[in-house]
């Protein structure tokens, strides 16, 4: 029994570990020495790492668990480079490439699977300039989904809320900021921190978010209550803050 449960937790643990490292890198702004902790800064749990993710999570670059975890995180394995404009570590690019190539979506893949794969590929193209754009998955559903479902599905694809990676999802998000904001409200009320953080990240990217939402404080609140138990919450909140700081 312990073997089975141990194996089952390896991937989620790896995802959490990588997410924590990415979040930390985002929090450090790529250069820890210049990051001055303001009154709102949460305590850092891991040092911002310069150097490959594999080393930061103490795995070999070709470790299948590492590659699978990178596939789960999608474009977020490259989030520091994409959000901070720093050059990506070549080993991380290799890891992202391996994750993309090892797990192509099947014909019957869900929108989340297909889009996160597309996002990983698009992130790689953006950073390396290599390759041709793949066919984007269907995004027709974004026009018709009632706001609760739209919000939930986009929250699962928050790794695509990136500057410089245009997608039909980002276009859809731009069209429905109030609906995403309603989703954020509902997610916080339900204490669904993962959904709230993902939506907060989209909301940080798109214009037209109602000021009465109180997004910056909402992100701090979500991080405070949900960040400790889920590193992906911290990653999305850090990404959102970076996006808000970069906003004109």
């Amino acid at each position: 029994m312990s073997d089975a449960s141990g194996a089952a937790s390896v991937l989620p643990d790896a995802v959490q570990n990588i997410a924590a490292v990415v979040a930390s890198a985002l929090a450090g702004g790529g250069s820890r020495s210049s990051a001055s902790p303001g009154p709102e800064a949460a305590p850092e749990t891991a040092a911002a790492v310069s150097g490959p993710l594999a080393a930061a999570v103490e795995r070999t670059p070709d470790d299948p668990v590492l590659v699978a975890a990178a596939r789960v995180l999608g474009a977020d394995v490259l989030a520091p480079a994409l959000l901070l404009g720093t050059p990506p570590d070549p080993d991380d690019v290799a890891l992202a490439t391996a994750a993309r190539d090892a797990y192509p979506p099947g014909a019957d893949a869900t929108a989340v699977t297909a889009w996160s794969h597309w996002g990983l590929d698009a992130a790689l193209r953006t950073l390396t300039g290599d390759g041709l754009p793949g066919t984007a998955p269907d995004a027709g559903w974004t026009a018709d989904e009632p706001w609760p479902r739209l919000a939930f599905r986009l929250s699962q694809l928050a790794s695509l809320a990136l500057p410089g990676v245009d997608s039909a999802l980002a276009t859809a998000a731009v069209k429905r900021p109030v609906d995403l904001a309603r989703g954020f409200v509902r997610a916080v009320r339900r204490r669904d921190w993962a959904q709230a953080a993902g939506l907060g990240r989209w909301l940080a990217l798109v214009p037209g978010v109602p000021p009465s939402l109180g997004l910056p404080n909402g992100l701090a609140f979500v991080h405070h209550l949900g960040g400790a138990s889920d590193a992906r919450v911290g990653l999305h909140v850090r990404a959102a803050r970076t996006l808000l700081e970069a906003a004109p």
Partner: peptide
């Protein structure tokens, strides 16, 4: 206007 914006979230919740 505030209610028109946020009431749907509360209703669904």
């Amino acid at each position: 206007a505030y209610l028109a914006r946020w009431l749907p979230a509360w209703l669904h919740d």
